[in-house]
Computed example of a mutant assay.
Amino acid sequence: MSKGSKITPFLWFNDNAEQAMDFYLSVFQNSKKLKVNRYGAGAPGPEGSVMIAAFELEGQQFLALNGGPMFQFTEAISFAVNCDTQDEIDELWEKLSAGGEPGRCGWLKDAFGLSWQIVPSILPELMSDPDPAVPGRVMQELMQMTKPDIVRLQGAAAGD
C-alpha cells in the first residue's frame, strides 16, 4: 500500500470485502485498487479468498478485511461525502443506496450495511448563518428529507 494519510479506515466484512471494494470503486470516479492480499493454505480463511483489500476513494485510503461474522457495521460510524451539486447528490444517493436502506437527513446504508451521509457542500454555510432563525429553518427542512435537496434547503434558509 502506498503511503497515505496517518489514519486509514479499516472495514471488517464477513466474507465479501472484495465485492464491497469493487462496488465502492464503481461508485466513486476518483478511486483505485491498491493491493489485495489473499489467504494461503492453513490460514483462517478459505485459501485464495481475500484477506485484506486496500483501496482509495477520492484520495482517502481504506482497508477491508474478511474477518468473519463476529462484527457488523452500525450507524455509530458513517462516511460523509460532500457534494457540490444536486446531480452529484442524486447520483451518489442512487448508487450507494441500491440494495441498501435510505435513511433520513441524507443518511443511508449501502448493500453491505455501511452508513454514509450524502451532504450538500453548502450545508455548513447555511447552518452558520448569522441570523439564528436560518439554521433552525434549514434543519427543520433537512429533517423532513431522505435524499438532500439543495434548492429546498436554500429556500428554507431564505424563509420560503
Rank of each mutant, 00 (worst) to 15 (best):
P46R: 14
E47V: 15
E47T: 15
E47G: 15
E47A: 14
G48K: 06
G48P: 01
S49Q: 15
M51K: 14
M51R: 13
I52E: 14
A53E: 11
A54T: 14
A54F: 12
F55K: 12
E56F: 00
L57W: 08
E58Y: 02
G59Y: 04
Q60D: 11
Q60L: 12
Q60I: 04
Q61M: 07
Q61V: 02
F62C: 04
L63A: 07
L63K: 08
A64W: 12
L65D: 13
N66M: 02
N66S: 13
G67D: 02
P69E: 10
P69F: 06
M70Y: 09
F71D: 07
F71S: 06
Q72G: 09
Q72L: 08
F73L: 09
E75D: 11
E75L: 09
A76C: 05
A76R: 11
I77K: 05
I77R: 11
S78F: 09
F79P: 08
F79D: 07
F79T: 14
F79W: 12
A80H: 01
V81H: 01
V81C: 01
V81N: 02
N82S: 13
D84W: 00
D84Y: 01
T85K: 09
T85I: 01
Q86R: 10
D87Y: 06
D87L: 04
D87I: 04
I89Q: 03
I89H: 07
D90A: 02
D90F: 00
D90I: 00
D90S: 00
E91S: 13
L92T: 03
L92D: 10
W93E: 02
W93L: 07
E94K: 12
K95N: 11
L96G: 05
L96P: 06
L96V: 02
S97P: 04
S97V: 09
A98Y: 06
A98W: 02
G99W: 02
G99C: 04
G99L: 04
G99P: 08
G99E: 06
G99F: 03
E101K: 12
E101N: 12
P102L: 04
P102H: 12
G103L: 14
R104C: 01
R104T: 09
R104P: 06
C105Q: 11
